[in-house]
Amino acid sequence: MTSPTRFAFDTLSRGDVLPTVDLTITHDDVRAYLEATGEPAARWGERVPPVMLSALMLATLLGQVEIPAGVMHTGQEHESRRPVRIGEALTVTVTVSSYAVRRGALMAAFDAEARAGDEVVATSRASVLVPPPEGADTEGNAE
């Protein structure tokens, strides 16, 4: 994965599109992932487990945005369009699909799209919540 510029979380706004990042998943990557999750490896052969791709799409976001302390990953969506092969050259683009403050808590969602050339192979959405700091004003709402 390439190393893009990192953005401060509090500078993001809804509609922002982060720079597209290259992603190629290797045999070693898949082996390490399956050893960690405990899933049997043999059945995957030359293919990438779908939720591994989702996790690495999320890692793309983590590599691009400085995530504040205390952030909670509250929800996740993922859709696979087709199997992804190990070694396939992908790109991942993350869009800030929502970003709002409610009673001091910051709620954001990030949509990620993985492409092989022009073809979308998977999409995902990660929802996060940053609780208000202790003693913060929790009355305001903003986007």
């Binding site: 293919r47 779908p50 939720v51 909670m72 990953h73 509250t74 929800g75 996740q76 969506e77 993922h78 859709e79 696979s80 369009r81 087709r82 199997p83 992804v84 929802s127």
Partner: peptide
Amino acid sequence: WERGGSLKVRW
């Protein structure tokens, strides 16, 4: 599951 599976979950 790889061809057209989708998930939507909350922790």
